[in-house]
C-alpha cells in the first residue's frame, strides 16, 4: 500500500501542530545554508514525539523555528507551521509573544546558561508566571506563591526555601527541574524540550524523563523531545522522526521504528550504539562510514548516499521522495519507493 504524503493542510482535531514543507535558511556571505529543507511533521495531541539526529542535522533549528526564534542570519523562507489550526509562520511578533511561553514553551539543553545567575530562581519562575497571567501582574507575593507551587510540582524539596536560592546553588538535575517548571508554569499546549537530559548523569536523566512523563499527563501537554539518544526516544516517545541534513528521513510510531527501521541512516544509528551485555570480544559495532557532510558540500541526490552501504546509482542523482508506507511509516529512500 503506497501513497504520496498528503501535502494538503491537515485539520483534524487530534493534531496540535502540523509542520508543512518548512524551510529555514541561513544567508551568509558565501552561501545559503539550508538548515531545514522541507520538513513535514505532524504532532498529535498529548503525545510525546521524538526528533532524533546527530549534531548539525537541524533538530535544534526545527525547535527554534517552531518558537520563531531562529537567530540571524537565518530565517524561515517557506512552509507552514499550523498550530491549533493557525499558521504561525506569518504571525507578527506581538501575537507570537502571546503564544510563546503561554501556549508553546521550550526548555534548553544547558540548564546553567538558560537561567539568569543574578536572580533567585523564585524571581525567575515568578516573572514567567506574571508575564503570561495578566491578573498576577503587580502582585509579587502572589506570583511568588505560584512559583512555590510550580517548584513543588516539579519535585523540588522544600520549595519555599529554594525560591531564595540562586541557580549556582542547585545541581544540574535541580536546575533542569526549575526550567521544566518555568516551561510548564502556564500549562502550555506544547512543550519543546531540546536535549533536556544530555548534560545530566544517567540517574538524574531517568528522574527528569519520568518527571516530564508524569507532568505531561497531568497538564495534558504535547511534548517534542529533541535528542540524539535513541534509548531516550524508545523509553519516552510514542512517535519519532529521524532527521539528517535538514530533512526528516524517516518517521513512524516508536515501536515500528525499532522493530522495522527502513532508512539506512536509522539502521546505521542503531548499529552504532553499544548494547548492554555485548562486548567487543563477541561482536563489533558497525559505525556509519564517513562523517556528516558540512553544509558547504551538500551531496547531490540523497544527502546520505555517500555514507550509505546500499546506495544505488539513482541515489547520487535524484533526491528520494517521501514514501508513506503502512501504519503511517514515512521514509525517504529509493530502496523503499
Amino acid at each position: 500500500m503506497l501513497m504520496q504524503l498528503p501535502n494538503a493542510q491537515i485539520k483534524t482535531d487530534d493534531v496540535i501542530l502540523h509542520i508543512e514543507n518548512l524551510r529555514t535558511y541561513f544567508f551568509t556571505r558565501e552561501r545559503i545554508v539550508r538548515a531545514l529543507d522541507g520538513v513535514n511533521i505532524s504532532l498529535k495531541r498529548s503525545v510525546t514525539t521524538g526528533i532524533v539526529g546527530e549534531s548539525g542535522c537541524g533538530k535544534t533549528m526545527l525547535a527554534l523555528s517552531i518558537m520563531r526564534l531562529v537567530p540571524r542570519p537565518g530565517r524561515i523562507v517557506g512552509g507552514h507551521i499550523w498550530f491549533e489550526g493557525k499558521d504561525i509562520v506569518g504571525l507578527d511578533e506581538e501575537s507570537m509573544r502571546e503564544i510563546r511561553g503561554a501556549e508553546i514553551s521550550m526548555i534548553f539543553q544547558e540548564p546553567m546558561t538558560s537561567l539568569n545567575p543574578v536572580f533567585t530562581i523564585g524571581e525567575q519562575v515568578a516573572e514567567t508566571i506574571a508575564l503570561h497571567q495578566r491578573e498576577l501582574r503587580g502582585s509579587r507575593s502572589f506570583a511568588l506563591q505560584k512559583a512555590i507551587e510550580v517548584l513543588a510540582m516539579v519535585g523540588i524539596p522544600q520549595p519555599e526555601k529554594r525560591i531564595k536560592d540562586y541557580p549556582h546553588q542547585l545541581s544540574g538535575g535541580m536546575r533542569q527541574r526549575v526550567m521544566i517548571g518555568m516551561a510548564l508554569a502556564c500549562k502550555p499546549k506544547l512543550m519543546i524540550a531540546d536535549e533536556p537530559t544530555t548534560a545530566l548523569d544517567v540517574t538524574s536523566q531517568a528522574q527528569i524523563l519520568e518527571l516530564m512523563e508524569g507532568l505531561k499527563d497531568e497538564i495534558n501537554t504535547s511534548i517534542i523531545l529533541v535528542t540524539h539518544d535513541l534509548g531516550v526516544v524508545a523509553e519516552t516517545c510514542q512517535d519519532v522522526s529521524v532527521m539528517y541534513m535538514g530533512k526528516v528521513v524517516e518517521s513512524s510510531k516508536v515501536d515500528t521504528l525499532f522493530s522495522n527501521p527502513l532508512h539506512p541512516y536509522t539502521i546505521g544509528l542503531m548499529r552504532s550504539r553499544p548494547v548492554l551485555g555485548k562486548t567487543a570480544k563477541s561482536y563489533r559495532l558497525k559505525p556509519i562510514p564517513g562523517t556528516v557532510p558540512t553544509f558547504r558540500d551538500v551531496p547531490k541526490g540523497c544527502p546520505f548516499h555517500d555514507r550509505c552501504e546500499v546506495a544505488m546509482s539513482i541515489c547520487s542523482e535524484k533526491e528520494p521522495p517521501a514514501t508513506l508506507l503502512e501504519g503511517s511509516h514515512m521514509v525517504r529512500c529509493w530502496r523503499h519507493v
Binding site: E54, S55, H228, L230, G268, L269, R271, S272, R273, P274, A280, R284, L285, K286, P287, I288, T291, V292
Partner: peptide, 13 residues
C-alpha cells in the same frame, strides 16, 4: 556523535 563514537571505539579496540 553516536556514529563517530562507534568509529573511535572500534579504533581503540
Amino acid at each position: 556523535d553516536v556514529s563517530i563514537q562507534a568509529q573511535v571505539l572500534n579504533l581503540l579496540v
